[in-house]
C-alpha cells in the first residue's frame, strides 16, 4: 500500500533533554530541543516521526503535516511551510 504524504498531527511532545549516547547521535550542531510526534494518515495508520519546526510553540494536535521517509526515521513538517 502506498501511504499519503499529508496527514494530521495525532500527538506530539518536545524532547527537552539530550538522550543518552549511545544510541543517540546528536546532529552536527549539537543537541537542541526538538519535536517528535505521530502523523495520522488517511489510510488509517499513525506513524512516528521527527517533527521539523522552527517554532516549537506553534505545534498543535490536528495540524496538517507532510511526512517523508528517508535516511533514518520518518520526518514531518507543517504542510503549510
Amino acid at each position: 500500500m502506498t501511504l499519503s504524504a499529508v496527514g494530521e498531527l495525532w500527538t506530539w511532545t518536545v524532547q527537552r533533554f539530550e538522550p543518552k549516547s549511545p544510541p543517540y547521535v546528536p546532529p552536527p550542531g549539537g543537541f537542541a530541543p526538538s519535536a517528535v510526534g505521530y502523523v495520522e494518515l488517511p489510510e488509517g495508520v499513525r506513524v512516528a516521526a521527527v517533527l521539523d519546526t522552527d517554532d516549537l510553540a506553534s505545534i498543535r494536535i490536528g495540524m496538517p503535516v507532510r511526512i517523508e521517509a528517508g535516511v533514518g526515521v520518518p520526518r514531518a513538517r507543517s504542510a503549510d511551510d
Binding site: T11, W12, T13, V14, Q15, P19, P22, P23, Y24, V25, S34, V36, G37, Y38, A48, V50, G72, V73
Partner: peptide, 15 residues
Amino acid sequence: YGRDGLMVTTQFFGM
C-alpha cells in the same frame, strides 16, 4: 530510532 533520538521512554508518556 536510537540514533535519531526516539528511544526515549519519557517521550511516549508525554505523547
